[in-house]
């Protein structure tokens, strides 16, 4: 009985989380632009993705911005972690507190503060300002993922490598980096995800005419969203689902099988 309620509760929460997603997938096959009614099945919206220039451009913008800002944030962030470790304890604490600001601050405040600063220095809003802003809010995710790993790995192996005659650069790339790689990967993935999902910062820091998927969707909220956006989102969702299944569930299953074979 207890188990029944447990499963029921978790089931209800997961239903709550997935109902809107199911709705969007259904709407991507709906033969009408109106949201509330079902007018029959169609593939049209999926075909339209490839001809709608606005959607194609927004998709590439989203992808390029996320990729560039995640790569830059990861490189700058990893270098920063190595540098931060060499700082005095007090300075380290101060730097880490400032690192936390974008994480704790409200998105809208981060967004308008950046916009105002660009204005104050006469930098006109463009793709560059969006990229810089994304790098800024992505960096804390990299640092918070990498720094603990670097602290765990300790400087001993680095120093050991130096004693054995490696140059500092070689010691970092062939000894320290492999050790902190899990942190670097998760930092990169978090930065990438945050950038893809961002709406508020892009909305306030983009130049005229630049759209990511988020800002394109927001601009269509009042007039009605083009169902091809549902179609594109469904495709992205399914791709991520497959990638995550391969990355997460398969190792679990094979591990479980091996265990089963062994016992």
């Amino acid at each position: 009985m207890k188990k029944f309620f447990r499963v029921l509760y978790i089931g209800l929460i997961f239903t709550f989380l997935y109902i809107p997603i199911l709705t969007l997938i259904v709407l991507s096959f709906n033969d009408t632009k109106t949201m509330g009614v079902w007018k029959g099945f169609t593939w049209d919206w999926y075909l339209e993705i490839f001809t709608n220039a606005q959607i194609i451009e927004a998709f590439w913008n989203t992808l390029i911005i996320a990729l560039v800002s995640a790569v830059v944030a990861t490189v700058v962030g990893v270098a920063a972690c190595v540098g931060i470790q060499a700082l005095r304890h007090r300075t380290q604490q101060l730097v880490l507190q400032v690192t936390n600001i974008p994480l704790l601050n409200a998105e809208i405040v981060t967004a308008i503060s950046l916009m105002l600063a660009f204005g104050l220095f006469g930098i006109s809003l463009s793709m560059g300002t969006v990229l810089f802003s994304h790098i800024t809010f992505c960096l804390p995710y990299v640092i918070l993922n990498v720094l603990p790993k670097l602290r765990q790995s300790g400087m001993h192996i680095y120093e050991a490598a130096l004693d054995l005659g490696a140059s500092p650069v070689r010691a970092f790339f062939s000894v320290v980096l492999p050790d902190i790689m899990p942190g670097v990967t998760s930092g990169f993935l978090m930065a990438f995800t945050m950038s893809v999902d961002d709406f508020v910062v892009t909305y306030f820091t983009r130049g005229a005419g630049i759209n990511t998927l988020s800002t394109l969707i927001y601009s269509q909220v009042k007039v009605g969203i083009r169902p091809s956006i549902y179609a594109l989102s469904t495709i992205i969702f399914v791709i991520v689902l497959i990638v995550l299944i391969v990355a997460n569930v398969l190792p679990d299953i094979t591990a479980a099988r091996k265990k089963g074979e062994n016992s």
């Binding site: 997935y18 997603i21 969007l24 999902d197 988020s214 969707i217 927001y218 997460n248």
Partner: peptide, 30 residues
């Protein structure tokens, strides 16, 4: 072993743009 799966199930919806998921509630609640 199940931990990964649970986090996966919780995080997966975030890969559908949050504005779209909110729009979906608009369609559901209308």
């Amino acid at each position: 072993e199940k931990k990964g799966l649970i986090i996966f199930v919780l995080i997966l919806p975030m890969w559908m743009n949050f504005l779209l998921r909110t729009m979906a509630w608009k369609a559901l609640l209308a």
